[in-house]
Simulated assay, not measured.
Amino acid sequence: MFTTVCQQVFSKSITDYHVKDDVYTHLQNPYEKASIEHLLYAKNWIDTVQWHLEDIIRDPNIDPVEALKIKRWIDRSNQERTDMVEYIDSYFLEQYKGVTPAANATINTESPAWAVDRLSILALKIYHMEEEAQRSDATAAHRAACQQKLEVLLTQRADLCGAIEALLADIAAGTKYMKVYKQMKMYNDPSLNPVLYAGNK
């Protein structure tokens, strides 16, 4: 199943990142460039680095200059994440280009790749909640609370995987169809962000 592949690739990406556990680690994608695994690994690597950037920027003692540098890095990362989702949706569009939707076919609330995006973030939540549930320096109460949260996350992952597989099956059968809207992020665009275009006058 497609979501099984996703989980395997996301797990590898997260494990590979934590070998050094450093946001400056260079990405070394182990999958063939033309493969969906390559896209999934790159997508999750972006999410994993951003997860740790979000941790760093919340340090109450962080130097303000460093905080601004990290914030701009996060902004770039958000754009890269959106771009990667669109690449993954392009893969699905190619996969199902030969399917003629039924006359009564409906559109889903989100594209397959945005659901995969949520699955990638969920993989990170599960990894880090599992760490917390096993923390030797934490209290038993903390570990127990984190174990309960972990069980909820695992259920959420199973539900999301089921929903993604059902959506892909519906698209393949023509009962649902894809429509991909290019994300129109405004804050990075000098022509759309008022703060940026005001400075160009």
Rank of each mutant, 00 (worst) to 15 (best):
R72S: 10
E151Y: 07
K125V: 06
N188I: 11
V180H: 11
T15I: 11
L122Y: 03
T15Y: 07
V116T: 11
A105W: 01
W73Q: 14
D89G: 00
P64H: 01
V49D: 00
A115M: 14
T109L: 10
S120T: 01
K33E: 15
N104Y: 05
C6H: 03
K71G: 08
A163R: 04
S120C: 02
G98F: 09
I57T: 12
V5T: 15
T82E: 13
L27K: 10
T82H: 04
Q95D: 08
E86L: 10
Q8G: 08
L168V: 11
W114H: 07
Y187W: 14
T100L: 14
K43I: 05
S13G: 14
H142E: 13
T155R: 11
Y96P: 02
K185I: 11
S120Q: 00
Y197K: 06
Q148W: 07
L154I: 12
N78G: 08
I62W: 04
K182G: 10
S136M: 13
R81I: 01
I62V: 14
P60E: 13
I171M: 05
L122W: 03
K182N: 10
L124I: 15
E151F: 08
S77D: 03
A198E: 14
A102K: 03
Q156L: 08
L153N: 05
L68H: 12
Q156S: 06
Q134H: 14
Q50V: 02
T25W: 01
S191T: 15
I121Q: 15
E32M: 11
A34G: 13
M84S: 02
I46P: 01
S90T: 06
V85R: 00
K201A: 12
L124V: 08
Q148N: 11
A198I: 10
I121Y: 09
F10S: 06
